[in-house]
Nucleic acid binder design. Sequence first.
DNA 1: TCAGTTCGCGCG
DNA 2: AAAGCGCGCGAACTGA
Length: 580
Amino acid sequence: MTEYVLIRDGSDLKKYEKSIEAASVVAVDTETTGLDPHRDTIRLIQLAVPRMPVLIVDCQRVLPEGLSTINRMLATKAVKIFQNAKFDLKFLQQSGVHVSLPLFDTMLAAQLLRQAGGPERVGLDSLVKHYLQMDISKEEQRSDWSRELSHKQLQYASLDAAVLIPLREAMVPQLINNGLTEVARLEFACVRALAQTEYNGIHLDLSCWMDLHHRVAQDKKKSLDRIYSIVGRPAEQQTLFGDDVPVGLNPDSNQQVIEWLKEQGIMVENTSRHTLTAYLDHPLVSAVLQYRQAAKSMSSFLATYAGMIHPVTRRLHPQYSQIGAWSGRMSCSKPNIQQIPREYSFRACFTAPAGRKLIMADYSQIELRVAAEISEDQRMMDAYRRGEDLHRLTASLITGIAPDQISPSQRQAAKAVNFGLIYGMGAKGLMDYARDTYGTDMTEEEAALFRNRFFEAYAGIARWHQSLRLSAPGQAQTLSGRQYQFAERAGLSVHTNIPVQGGAADILKQALGNLVDELISVDARIVAVVHDEIILEAAEDQAETVSSILKRVMEDAGAHYLKRVPVCADVKIGSHWGEK
DNA sequence: TCAGTTCGCGCG
DNA sequence: AAAGCGCGCGAACTGA
């Protein structure tokens, strides 16, 4: 059984300060009364170092008196080990505890190893079972940490911290063997930024949001009326609440929509926007598409966000999953702030509170720059080095028109060509993609022609695709060594997407990791991260300073990974997200 | 009745 | 053989 010492006051804690500070690794775990750092409180902090009993700090008794001691203990050069550091860091932040780098997160390490063929499950129990052949699963699923502490609880608490030390020792050789030490460093350095971002949340102007809600609700009603005027009025049924709801006819049912279209002489197998766009002239089709857009806006965004505003902070607190995607990108949920419509009316509702400003920065064409770097395509690298507009250049190369004669719509088409063909799209795919994403129409012949000219112009990209097909089947990696294994017969797009999308993610994470320490001396905090974009909220009078810090940190992170191509971040200061 | 799956669509 | 990729989420649908 793990030995522990229960620390009950600040002077008690001080006795152990030297031995913690002398250690080269410190495992940290916390026990909290719940999962919400703005409503629940931290009860215990467990600190484990090799060959010593685990220190269990009773926060109710030791804080705030012992805060400075704990902060000194966690500001050392020792590796601080956590399982799911993001969670603990949010509670530590709430208590005023700061943790310095370096940091090791066993869960993130397990997620990296999983992509390289390691075990699926990344919970502490599973990891300990797999890497240490020990069973530490507890009888009761979750202890109640708001009541009196029992000996048994304290034993579990100390074990959860103590086990992290041998667990890390078992995982490190795995990371080394798989070439994952660099990407692990990257992920570990970035987790503090995510903890802060979740803790900070983002401000949503509710009255602005509800106004929009009202307008879209009317749009939805109008398009629904147009649908009913064509397919017939539904019978109405009184609910318990006295309002009438239509029964029988439901435009949310694709099966019904297919039937209605059949009656109008339109035969389709599905009702996706892609399919229906071909019949836009028909009033039913346009009504259905309009209804869809309004209904999507309502159900996914407008109707649900008000309920997610935190009662204490009055802000939204989206959750980030640091290794959310195969490629190493992050994902986001509850709500997913990464999928807010680009429309001004939506984004303008995300505001800075009075006296503060939003600092919004995004990378310029980061995926294309990563593609240029790793393919070493000479023409692309040259274009970026000279600061040329790559979309314009591509438009010129595939049409033969001089760059300064390229029209906006030609440039738009070239954008689709650039993004699509980098990932190995075929002619048909390119045609559909250009129409769906950029509203650019081209025939399949034109698409095939563009495709051929693209690969003639960018021979480096063609060679890169060729080499991906031949070397390392079933395997891909990014600039940081992040890797992913897949079926050997997987398509070219998997090979290209992982390094390009993942490389861009590496760069963003590098920036986030460096940002935390850069922002310590200013009044600024991270409020959102959207793939290639970082949004900060800063005191109004520091906005300029903060924006130059953000730009520098992002561009330096780019330069860290891209040696042959410059990286550029565009920064804007505004009072809301719509101003970007 | 309810968990799991599919479709469709918002973002980068 | 051909294929852009990566997510989360709501509503409908499916199956037991």
